[in-house]
Amino acid sequence: MMQLVLVITAATLSLAAAGAIVRIAVGPSLLDRVLAADVLLAILGAALCIDMAVNRHLNNLMLVVAVSVIGFIGSVTVARFVADRREQPSDS
């Protein structure tokens, strides 16, 4: 049964990753791309979790935490940068 689950989840996550990559490529703005990259990282974390569950080990757990922290720091930094660059109100 685990093999079947592995196949299904692998297909689902590949599709999801493809969607996120398309959004990174298309994304009209920088923030869209950051967001899509964040989702891509989350998908990577999900894949690591599934690997742990199917093969019954715990080696990836810290990697999952690290990946989520990287996603957090990355998006906060970029959001901060974007907000700073346009701090001057462009609307009047």
Partner: peptide, 17 residues
């Protein structure tokens, strides 16, 4: 749980698109 969890990622990708 695993299938639904993976489906959530797919949902996010669909939402993104």
């Amino acid at each position: 749980f695993m299938v639904v969890g993976a489906a959530m990622s797919l949902g996010a990708a669909i939402g993104l698109l």
